[in-house]
């Protein structure tokens, strides 16, 4: 029998780092479960979970639930209530995602270089599915100056690369008169 050691999605990519007023750091993965209620079973699910996020919602009745696409939400943390499988599809996604935190007063300016959606009206916290450059993106807005950026694990390098360039560019612009 062998023993396996774990590695992180951003291993070898030199996070965290800062350019100018923004900082990028890796999120240490927790248990993430994709919950997708079967058609017509949302009410039953709400009873068990204490709620289920509508599009764009993030809330924490017990576990943190982040809307993550059509009829699905990611639950962060351990301790899902029993019986969920009768009304929803459940999939462990703890290893599917690479998540990073982009923070600082220029975080929005950095995202404006990469994300083609209107971030002005998003409340905090809230979530959106969109793209970062060509990468699939689950964006969680924590505050006006803090965003969680989640993409698929295999694309961690591209996520870092795109953000690194945009962060450098925004920082360099600050010096222009």
């Amino acid at each position: 029998m062998i023993e396996l050691s774990a590695s992180q999605p951003f291993a070898g990519l030199h996070l965290p780092f800062s350019h100018g007023a923004t900082r990028l750091s890796a999120i240490v993965p927790a248990r993430m479960t994709m919950i997708a209620p079967f058609p017509g079973k949302t009410e039953a699910l709400v009873k068990l979970l204490g709620g289920f996020p509508a599009p764009g919602e993030v809330f924490e009745p017990h576990l943190r639930l982040v809307w993550a696409g059509r009829e699905q939400a990611l639950a962060f943390g351990e301790g899902l209530p029993d019986g969920l499988e009768t009304c929803a599809s459940l999939n462990d996604q703890s290893d599917s995602w690479a998540g990073a935190i982009l923070e600082g007063e220029d975080a929005k300016a950095v995202l404006a270089r990469l994300v083609a959606m209107d971030l002005r009206a998003l409340p905090a916290p809230s979530s959106a599915r969109t793209m970062l450059g060509h990468l699939p993106l689950l964006l969680v807005k924590e505050s006006e100056a803090e965003f969680q950026l989640w993409t698929y694990r295999s694309m961690a390098g591209s996520l870092k690369n795109d953000l690194d360039q945009a962060m450098r560019s925004v920082a360099a612009r600050r010096a222009v008169t």
Binding site: A36, P37, F38, P39, G40, S89, Q93, D95, R153
Partner: peptide, 15 residues
Amino acid sequence: CRGWQLRLCSVTEQW
């Protein structure tokens, strides 16, 4: 398949 009791989920990156 409206109303059918199932959901799809990509788990390519999980494994």
